[in-house]
Nucleic acid binder design. Structure first.
Lengths: 252, 252
DNA sequence: GTCTATATGTGGATAGAC
DNA sequence: GTCTATCCACATATAGAC
């Protein structure tokens, strides 16, 4: 009820540092001592402000996902108002969903690439409380976008759309997380990957923009790929064998 | 030199159990006590046989990646012998790379889906020794496949190919890892996602097959998507604006 | 090769003074 | 709200008997 006046910024400083350390080391490998040490606050401060380490992680995400969820819903609302009753183009839906997220990477006030990387990595953490948390946080948004895709691709089986949404999330998460073999193995540096811009101009913001420009065509290409051919069920698949192999191309 | 006779199968049992527990909980959250307890061997056995927990993880992977690396190289060799000097079709390269992996999921003797899931999750673990390990294990194979893709897609900038290889790896890893929000949120069960087969017939092997059938078209569609349009550099982009937007379609 | 016992460190959390 | 001091569970690793 009563406004906290002595909040100073201890709370926010813990959140900022925790965001970075969880991103760099993962949840399990980041200790509260590492966090409070780097944030230059007392060890007991985390438990005082958040209650537990688990609760701290949740708060790190809640702070950002609140904005992201609202923005994603707003973006979809805007699109659907333009075509009242009609169907959206898949590219519009992907842009609203993935573009909104990727734009967070360009804005340090929204966590920038640090948060994006953290998100990409944490999505695959097996800890149950983490999976449960994300399931709850994402439920509404995923449901809305799933339905939008169903309407946008009425000829594609819904199970297939769910799979492809799944694949798209993976491509994005992994690309964002950036903890991968490729960068090390290929010897291609981030700067090179980001484009041809001179090194001194390069920053996280530019990286996020480049990533978006390269990722969106890939995702759209995957989403609109020909439907798979199943061998086993051996259903009566008499009608024009070319049909299924044709690409899904509903006005992009 | 001398063959160990009293090896019994303690070593293998530790590896099998560790594979499963690392998959379920992640590296950090899996203790040696959990492993030795489940494997019903003595706590000291891990250090005796492998030296340390880190070395155990490496051995869990080495055991499977040895086969995978050889098989991937053999598959590429076979293809390149068929078209001596010529270029392969992107679909052939993807089939050799991703198909070989996904077929491990159908074969319990190669670790089955347990190993695939472990691999998908561990690739994003931030621990440095893990990243270093994978970089070394994958170096040769990635290099060979990268070059094959360069030749197969001579008109696509190499940086773009690296990015897309990156995206493809992500889509696959994430789909395999399966620790995601979608399955929980959408309420779609694994059985449903795998297809329309009755539940009693469903198993890991069938899941791996279905995953492959659904993933391959997606990956190919993404790989062959139109090249991205960059706004910033503002290079002289006079020549037919349609060209860049056209899909990459080198005889599939 | 296997076992017990133990060394040695670190983790998250909290009680209670200020 | 912040701090010190401390509890206690659990981690990896090893020494040394069998």
């Amino acid at each position: 009820m009563s406004e906290q006046k002595t909040n100073s910024d201890t709370r926010e400083r813990i959140l900022d540092i925790a965001e970075r350390l969880f991103m760099e080391n993962g949840y399990e490998a980041t200790s509260m001592r590492m966090i409070t040490g780097a944030a230059e606050v007392n060890l007991a401060a985390v438990n005082y402000h958040f209650g537990s380490k688990e609760a701290l992680l949740r708060e790190v995400f809640r702070r950002r996902l609140g904005w992201l969820n609202e923005e994603r819903l707003r973006a979809l609302d805007r699109l659907e108002q333009q075509v009242v009753g009609g169907a959206l183009k898949p590219s519009q839906i992907l842009e609203a969903f993935f573009g909104t997220l990727l734009r967070m990477g360009e804005n340090p006030a929204l966590g920038g690439m640090t948060f994006l990387r953290l998100l990409g990595r944490t999505l695959t953490e097996p800890a149950e409380f983490i999976q449960t948390f994300f399931a709850g946080e994402y439920a509404e948004v995923i449901e809305r976008y799933k339905r939008a895709l169903y309407r946008a691709l009425p000829d594609v089986p819904q199970a297939e759309i769910v799979w492809r949404l799944h694949f798209m999330l993976g491509a994005m998460s992994y690309a964002i997380a950036g903890t991968d073999v490729l960068r090390v193995v290929t010897g291609v540096e981030v700067g090179d990957l980001a484009g041809e811009m001179p090194a001194e101009e390069f920053d996280d913001s530019a990286f996020a923009r480049r990533l978006a420009q390269r990722l969106m065509p890939f995702l759209l290409g995957g989403l609109r790929a020909p439907l798979p051919q199943f061998d086993e069920p051996a259903v009566k698949q008499k009608e024009s064998p070319e049909k299924a192999a044709r690409e899904i191309r509903p006005e992009i």
